[in-house]
């Protein structure tokens, strides 16, 4: 077994070292580091514009960094092409965003089933599995409704169900409660972290809200494109 080049804590699932990324003249990441274990919930905090979302996009293989290394499960992501990274996202990762993620014309259960169907599952099978997850997130009664017919909190739970439906090993959540009131937000966080823990999935949670971050095991702070791992800093 080959150890990744940097010195990650033993047993890390996803490790990033010295990430740099610039969008034109703006530097989004300037030497950021990150690592996460299976089953761990790590909050990524920091002021807006600090590079939190960019870090998440890089970690998830959505955006390739300009330099630096991202090793997932022993594989260097830079060596994968777009198709391979897409396949990785489909099968190993799950995603929850703040908004704009449910396909408005599909029903809720069809939305949840989408990742499974993209992986080639049959419609019936996919929707069966999806209903199970919707039940866990207490939105199974909305299965046949469209996203426009459900509340924000319900929609976000549907999105969480969708992110978990493939049993991902890493769940990426970018401000998952950003558009919700505190009660709904907390319920979503509770369900999300519970579900993740029960499947031993790692959760990368980008948030600027302390009470959302409180659902994490550990937080890192991103400021001006640099990350700070608070656990190891103290």
């Amino acid at each position: 077994m080959t150890a990744p080049t940097p010195m990650p804590p033993a047993g890390s699932l996803l490790v990033a070292t010295d990430l740099r990324k610039a969008y034109g003249p703006t530097t989004a990441l300037d030497g950021a580091e990150f690592s996460i274990h299976p089953g761990e919930v790590v909050a990524v905090m920091g002021p807006s514009g600090s590079g939190k979302s960019t870090l998440l996009h890089c970690l998830a293989g959505i955006v390739p960094p300009d330099s630096g290394s991202i090793v997932y499960n022993g594989r260097e992501m830079a060596t994968m092409n777009d198709t391979q990274r897409s396949a990785l996202r489909r099968s190993e990762f799950g995603f929850v965003f703040q908004f704009g993620q449910l396909v408005p014309e599909l029903t809720c259960v069809e939305n949840v089933a989408l990742p499974l169907r993209l992986n080639g599952a049959s419609r019936k099978e996919a929707e069966q599995t999806s209903l199970g997850w919707m039940r866990r997130l207490e939105v199974d009664d909305l299965a046949r409704k469209r996203p426009s017919e459900v509340s924000g909190g319900q929609g976000q739970r549907v999105a969480v169900a969708r992110s978990l439906v493939t049993n991902p090993r890493v769940l990426f959540a970018d401000e998952p409660t950003g558009a919700l009131d505190s009660l709904n937000g907390e319920r979503v966080m509770e369900l999300l972290t519970e579900a993740a823990r029960s499947t031993n999935a790692a959760v990368v949670l980008v948030t600027h809200e302390a009470r959302v971050a409180a659902y994490s095991d550990r937080e890192i702070v991103v400021r001006d494109g640099k990350s700070r791992d608070m656990e190891r800093a103290v």
């Binding site: 909050a43 009470r211 971050a213 409180a214 994490s216 702070v221 700070r228 608070m230 800093a233 103290v234």
Partner: peptide
């Protein structure tokens, strides 16, 4: 900034316990 960051960490630790 170090002082503020470690304080934040401490707050979060507390918040996790409360949560």
């Amino acid at each position: 900034a170090d002082i503020l960051d470690s304080q934040r960490s401490e707050h979060l630790r507390m918040m996790r316990i409360l949560t």
